[in-house]
Design a protein around this nucleic acid. Structure first.
Lengths: 140, 140
DNA sequence: CGGTATCCCGAGGGATACTG
DNA sequence: CAGTATCCCTCGGGATACCG
């Protein structure tokens, strides 16, 4: 059977090029940005925390109030990740009791553009995806 | 102390608006596209599989050869997710033995743009992040 | 070839209690 | 206020073997 030629969108080519580039070298996980960088975005709370810090710099408990379901444990852990990756700054004020403020770094802000695009897509595609799931589950 | 005003980039505002919109309703996980849609992108293999299918339609074992580390089990599972979400089509050809081809749906292709942006960012930010990690770990 | 079916382990992450 | 310290349990995902 004959097959329709692929639409050659720029995005498709960009993606394909990148995969080729990665594959040309023997695959080294430590060299793969997707694994090394984007994995954290898949963590349960990272994106939400990034979004709250995108609104404005916030103190620990302010973030927690903005994302009510998170535990202190996971909030600390997620913020530490962001700080370690240089996406957010942590500043301690010597008040009593101490207050700590978190804010996005320039690098963290530079992520907001791409992230916003992806979230836009997620919202736009949400209905389609839910319908597709229903149809798939119905036909088992 | 006084604090610098925030740069009000479009992305920042878009992100902040969206978070506000989500928060206005009592948070319903089933209504949250980030949780419902983007979670799968955080799965270990989803993005890589999407990229291989972005190159061209492929048969099961072709995908596996392109992503050598994946097991048949996880490949099946990931492809099923994509199919269920309507991001990819699965077509069975009645050859002997049977051959099955997967290709991105239009919806799946529409994800390539945003995804490409994010991967661009990941590659561009990779060095910065690695340096930030080293510095953070050094100062313990 | 293109999958399922099991078994199993380690990490992600929740609950709770304690601390400087 | 802003965390640590434990305990515990689910579940993502690897290894292996089998099937139409």
């Amino acid at each position: 059977m004959t097959r329709l030629p692929l639409s050659n969108s720029p995005a498709r080519e960009a993606i394909a090029d990148r995969l080729n580039r990665w594959s040309s070298a023997p695959f080294d996980a430590s060299k793969c940005p997707v694994r090394d960088v984007l994995d954290h975005l898949g963590d349960k709370w990272t994106t939400l925390i990034l979004m709250t810090l995108a609104e404005q710099p916030r103190r620990f408990s302010q973030v927690q109030r903005r994302v009510p379901d998170i535990s202190k444990r996971m909030l600390t852990q997620t913020l530490r990740q962001l700080e370690r990756d240089g996406l957010a700054f942590r500043e301690v004020f010597p008040t009593k009791p101490p207050s700590v403020e978190y804010q996005l770094s320039p690098l963290g802000e530079s992520l907001l553009g791409p992230l916003s695009q992806l979230v836009d897509w997620a919202e736009a595609a949400h209905d389609n995806i839910r319908q597709a799931r229903s149809a798939f589950d119905a036909s088992n």
